[in-house]
Nucleic acid binder design. Structure first.
Lengths: 214, 214
DNA sequence: TTTTAATAAAGAATTATTTCTTTAATTAAA
DNA sequence: TTTAATTAAAGAAATAATTCTTTATTAAAA
């Protein structure tokens, strides 16, 4: 089989490695190393319960070289990670579904420093339409299509109940949204052009419970 | 190197397969197949953009056999998935950090059908201590330790800011919590006995943005 | 009844990822 | 100065996961 699939394979870095990079970044920023000049892969690995070679290889996918016997320059490593992860870009996002989870994401506010800016939110509940959360206006979904093209929005954040997730995913795709961040506990049917990232909390729960009750 | 790591390797099923099982379950429940008698791996794979053999193999890790030319009995497959994923068990959880995300998780309420019951929540903000969210009481963190042992709580849900995540993780571990579901955007340092499941939203964001801006 | 098509299942092959091994560099200690 | 220890990096080996191939089955169509 040809299996183009929806993989949209990352060029240059394996997905498992890419997933670990943000962990290294937040680890460094929250550790004592933030105040020192150098940090070694060995130290990161030890604290994060990973293999040192794995950490070294992950970091080697980026444009930075470490010093033998010393490690990486902390500031340089942070910069390299932020660059590589696109934290200095701004990708504009619309969010559909301003319920509990959607609201939590808007209030959280950490994404703006990470390359993603939520420009507006959409819902069909008259109770919440018109409200504003952290300067993000909540508008009726009817306005979504028009605004996406006018404002050059590339990312759609989907935080609606499972039952209507596909419907709104289809709306996003038909409007030309390039990438959908799906928080609905349901995988989406898509064409092959649209990038889908499923953040399925139930997959995480499944792993946790299986380890707890093998 | 011995590398015991914190892997707590799943016996019987590879982690990637385990992560896909909840997706199959929610897909089936939300698809038209819920009203039919049989569903084939081919159909699941097609809609989810996966390889049919992969779906077949994933399902084969559980105790169910499919019928050639027909597929799996829908009800039997749902039951098998729910059993395998432990949806019929009840694991009791305490949550620390009743902020936006913690509140969203409590309000969401879908976990109870999935094997995890949030019994109580803890915070150190006097403003929210004493409140109740979906019948879950919010108590001062000082009471955490005592209640964990008295109530035989096995799971800790950690929804606090990164800066204090390690501190509360240590508290959970010292109280005998068996598994920590960590939503803080920071990997935790742990001993090797405690099960940690990191739900790092930034890893998902990283993959999405790298595909969008390769 | 016979043929065709759809499918699960088992196993082989391939590919991806992790882990191990070796090397060279270099800082710090003796 | 010399030695020992620590580390990044490169490459080899091992392991894990996915994809491909074949086979047997069986429902539906001819």
């Amino acid at each position: 089989m040809a299996t183009s699939k929806n993989k949209k394979n990352l060029v240059g870095i394996p997905e498992p490695s890419l997933r670990r990079l943000p962990l290294y970044l937040s680890y460094i920023k929250n550790s004592d190393f933030i105040e020192r000049k150098f940090i070694s892969a060995t130290h990161i690995a030890k604290d994060l319960n990973l293999d040192p070679t794995q950490v070294t290889k992950d970091i080697a996918y980026m444009d930075i070289i470490g010093k033998t016997r010393v490690g990486y320059d902390v500031n340089e490593l942070i910069e390299t990670l932020e660059d590589f992860l696109g934290y200095r870009n701004t990708n504009k996002a619309f969010l559909i579904g301003a319920g509990n989870l959607g609201t939590a994401l808007m209030k959280y506010g950490g994404f703006e420093k990470s390359g993603l800016k939520i420009i507006a939110a959409f819902d069909n509940d008259p109770q919440i339409i018109g409200k504003e959360i952290e300067n993000i206006k909540i508008m009726p979904v009817e306005k979504f299509a028009n605004l996406v093209s006018r404002m050059h929005i590339s990312v759609g954040i989907l935080t609606v109940p499972a039952a209507v997730a596909q419907e709104y995913a289809d709306l996003m795709i038909s409007c030309g949204i390039k990438a959908i961040w799906n928080f609905a506990p349901l995988p989406l049917k898509t064409n092959d052009e649209t990038i889908i990232e499923n953040t399925s909390i139930y997959s995480n729960l499944a792993v946790l419970l299986k380890k707890l009750n093998p």
